[in-house]
């Protein structure tokens, strides 16, 4: 008997050629990486909590997001679950950032 294979657990499956195009880390990706490390050092985020929250995005979202987008979604989820931040605070801050960046683009 076998059970279902979860989306992240991909060893042994068929897949295409290894992609040869790469990109240098973008500033927001480095920021995400640093946030992860800093939260880890403060014991707010463990590797397996992050992994679990990435896996639990489910096949649709997991495949749609790129690597650091998954990190971003998973890390926010952990911090929300632990009451380090709230949905309302994150939503308000995102709206503020978006407004500021949109204005910066216009100027």
């Amino acid at each position: 008997m076998t059970g279902p294979r979860r989306v992240h657990d991909m060893g042994g499956q068929d897949a295409g050629s290894i992609p040869t195009d790469g990109h240098e880390s973008e500033p927001w990706e480095k920021r995400m990486d640093a946030i992860r490390m800093l939260c880890g050092q403060r014991e707010l985020l463990r590797t397996d909590e992050m992994r679990r929250n990435i896996e639990d995005l489910g096949p649709g979202v997991y495949n749609e997001l790129n690597y650091y987008e998954r990190w971003c979604a998973a890390i926010s989820n952990v911090l929300l679950q632990k009451k380090v931040i709230s949905v309302d605070e994150l939503g308000r801050k995102m709206a503020e950032v978006e407004k500021r960046w949109t204005e910066a683009r216009k100027s």
Partner: peptide, 29 residues
């Protein structure tokens, strides 16, 4: 993108809350 905005917002919120400082973030990067 949505996630770039979220990454920025997360960092700013965590700094405001004193989880780490802007300097910690810069040094970590």
């Amino acid at each position: 993108t949505h996630h770039q905005v979220m990454a920025e917002a997360l960092g700013e919120l965590l700094i405001e809350k004193g989880v780490f400082t802007a300097d910690d973030l810069r040094r970590q990067i």
